[in-house]
Amino acid sequence: MKIKQIFQWLLGSNKKKSSSPQNGMQADKSEMMQKVLTMLSNTQDVEMTCDEVFAVLDQFAELAARGEDVSRLMPLVQHHLDMCPDCQEEYKVLQRIVLNAV
């Protein structure tokens, strides 16, 4: 339980606070289950991997910066970014650079 508490402390600023300490754990579990189910709901049979997305992320960022409909042009990349927080974070940082350069 100690590990869990450390985790909650580390993630505290990003997580929704529960309505009371008593049902905090319950809210966490319910939230976690909802996250899992949302991920399942969005799971596709074929998905791009992180390496495949990284290979085209520069192209994707430039298209988005030009106002192109990237969800239509590169739907599998968009889907991966929706599912993978690491790649999404990298995309957002790259996007800042590209937009700043435009």
Partner: peptide
């Protein structure tokens, strides 16, 4: 050799920098 010219070269280089930094 892996740069395929689908973006500006500097965007491609920045992509590498962003991944390394994060």
């Amino acid at each position: 050799d892996t740069f395929e010219g689908r973006s500006q070269f500097t965007t491609w280089a920045h992509k590498i920098a962003v991944r390394a930094a994060l």
